[in-house]
């Protein structure tokens, strides 16, 4: 610990650094927002959700002339942060980035929270998973892979996220959709997509179902190949990777989404200001550049569309998670 004088000294230094870009526009004389806004992120600093939230936060800051503090409330596979958003004061000064897990955690009996526990503001992003194998694996197409699974159920191991996570559901739902059993490819839980991709490259597992941007580094490095993508259309960043529908004729699709939401019961005066601001942020060049750079898919959903999206997603998750035996209700 430094002495007080040094605290102030180095504080002043940090202030100068911060001054390069942060505190800008003067406060607008308007009812809301009259003080800093907190944006809660249920996932760790540096991840995809965090980065997306920080970009949106910076853009909202410009819109409102008030600081938007991005606060990571991590842990419990998202439960802690999601519950922090839902239980915050509904005054518009706490918003948060909620993710696809909100439609999954309640099936596992981890929380009572659902999409309906929030005031939906905007759906900002959705990323479908791809089916990745190691670069030198014998499976040249997703058809080869399915044939190998059928020939030897339980031999190939899959990974991409924790037990019962979104990519686990993606794999299991896909297997079911083509008439196989959900556990014909046993799931190896991992701490997210990056360790799973690394384990794939190291030869520890055989298939990783995770989103294309998450797999991209390994694919670009020539360590992994993507065989198919679980979305209605091909990914513009990887035009050579076919969809599951093209290859196997199944309609199974899924996506991990991120959206902005507030606690339930936020006044209309707040939503009336924030939704258009989010729309402008979503359409801004900064946001587009960032999302394209990272390969994240951009989707826009108004509050009503966002709510419907969450409800549909929730029902779909329930079906697969029950089949997997991980749903409690």
């Amino acid at each position: 610990m430094l002495k007080r004088r040094d605290v102030i000294k180095s504080g002043a230094a940090a202030a100068t650094v911060a001054g390069l870009g942060l505190k800008g526009a003067p406060a607008i004389a308007q009812a809301w927002p009259s003080r800093p806004i907190t944006m809660v992120v249920p996932w760790g600093a540096g991840g995809g959700t965090d980065q997306t939230a920080r970009i949106v936060g910076t853009l909202l800051e410009k819109e409102f002339g008030q600081p938007v503090n991005v606060v990571n409330r991590t842990g419990g596979s998202g439960v802690v942060g999601h519950s922090a958003i839902a239980t915050a004061a509904a005054d518009g000064y706490t918003i948060g980035m909620i993710t696809v897990e909100i439609g999954m955690m309640h099936w596992q009996g981890l929380t009572d929270l659902k999409g309906t526990s929030y005031t939906p503001l905007a759906l900002m992003n959705a990323d479908p998973p791809g089916v990745q194998v190691k670069a030198d694996s014998p499976y040249k197409s997703v058809k080869d892979l399915v044939a190998a699974i059928k020939a030897n159920p339980g031999k190939l191991k899959g990974s991409g996220t924790g037990q019962g996570g979104i990519w686990h559901v993606a794999l299991a739902g896909w297997l079911q959709a083509i008439g196989l059993k959900a556990d014909d490819v046993p799931w190896v839980p991992s701490n997210g997509a990056a360790p799973a991709m690394q384990d794939l490259a190291a030869g520890g597992i055989d298939v990783v179902t995770c989103s294309v941007p998450e797999a991209r580094a390994m694919i670009d490095a020539g360590k992994a190949r993507s065989l198919a993508v679980m979305s209605p259309q091909r990914n513009p960043a990887f035009p050579n990777v076919p969809t599951l529908k093209e290859e196997l004729g199944t309609d199974w699709t899924l996506a991990a989404w991120r959206g902005i939401a507030a606690p339930k019961g936020v006044p209309a005066a707040v939503t009336d200001r924030i939704v258009p601001a989010l729309k402008r942020a979503h359409d801004s060049a900064t946001f587009k550049d960032f999302m394209n750079q990272r390969g994240f898919g951009m989707v826009w959903g108004e509050p009503a569309a966002f709510a419907k999206h969450m409800a549909d997603d929730d029902a779909k998750m329930g079906v697969v998670m029950k089949a997997l035996g991980i749903a409690k209700t």
Partner: peptide, 16 residues
Amino acid sequence: ATAAIQYAFASLLRVP
């Protein structure tokens, strides 16, 4: 001390 902590953590480091 309180002023220094409030300034360094809340204002500069954006700890809520």
